[in-house]
């Protein structure tokens, strides 16, 4: 402890003011040192690139240009990826559009959605009850021949599996649903073609007239077919997967 005390005492003794020339010089030097420290600290804080040496600047420039090269490469790769994604998205959109069109035409065909469009309305009055299911079946065949795309008989939507029959009391049945005269058939397709097909000699109109019925055929620009068919779930038939159709 005594050594530590001497140390402090020495410091204090030397710290006491002495009016020697050397002490004054030391003071000036210390003043300069403080001034220089502050100046340098300020300089370091404020200085930008202009205080750097040439070699440092060259190194910095090298560094920056290397980094910019790397970033350029990255940007090019990202741009390529983006282009691929964009074109992929476009072909996806095409595929989705085609699939949606297919779906809606199949829905019309399967009778699961309402349909509208130009077509004809056929009304068959049957005062003598001579019209049978086979007459309606013939009418349907002729309509299909003439290009009917959607057909409704009475309240029943006609689809691929539609069948005709006669109940025990003589009522005509379509898909198991009784249909009573006057029979009303709605068909969407080219109105002119279908009307002509109904009117040809030996066609539906003549047949019905021979049986004592009154056929009325009206063409119109908008026919609404809103009867729906609910398809049964298939128990046996399974679709066979095929190769994805290319677009």
């Amino acid at each position: 402890m005594s050594g530590g005390a001497t140390g402090w005492r020495r410091l204090v003794r030397m710290g006491a003011p002495r009016a020697t020339k050397a002490n004054a010089l030391a003071t000036v030097l210390a003043l300069l040192l403080g001034f220089a420290i502050v100046t340098q600290v300020r300089q370091t804080r404020s200085e930008g690139l202009d205080a750097l040496r040439q070699t440092e600047l060259v190194g910095l420039l090298d560094d920056v240009s290397q980094r910019s090269d790397r970033l350029d490469k990255d940007a090019a790769q990202l741009r390529r990826t983006r282009d691929e994604l964009v074109s992929g998205g476009a072909s996806d959109r095409e595929a989705r559009k085609a699939a949606r069109e297919r779906l809606s035409s199949l829905e019309v065909l399967a009778g699961t959605v309402p349909a509208k469009g130009p077509g004809i309305t056929i009304t068959i009055g049957d005062p003598r009850h001579e019209i049978t299911d086979s007459v309606l079946l013939d009418a349907l065949q002729e309509l299909r021949d003439a290009g009917a795309e959607a057909v409704q008989i009475g309240p029943v939507r006609v689809v691929a599996s539609t069948y005709f029959g006669t109940a025990q009391d003589g009522t005509v049945q379509v898909d198991g649903v009784g249909v009573r005269p006057p029979y009303r058939i709605l068909a969407i397709g080219d109105p002119h073609t279908m009307a002509a097909a109904m009117a040809i000699p030996g066609g539906l109109a003549e047949n019905v007239r021979q049986l004592g019925g009154h056929p009325t055929i009206t063409q119109s620009q908008t026919i609404h077919i809103d009867a729906l068919h609910s398809p049964p779930a298939h128990r046996y038939a399974q679709p066979v997967p095929t190769a994805t159709p290319t677009q």
Binding site: A26, A30, L33, T39
Partner: peptide, 21 residues
Amino acid sequence: MIPAIGMVVGILVGLLFHPTV
């Protein structure tokens, strides 16, 4: 002691005058 005071004065002068190197 006097040199230490000199250094403090130098620091203050530097802070006041914003010298540039």
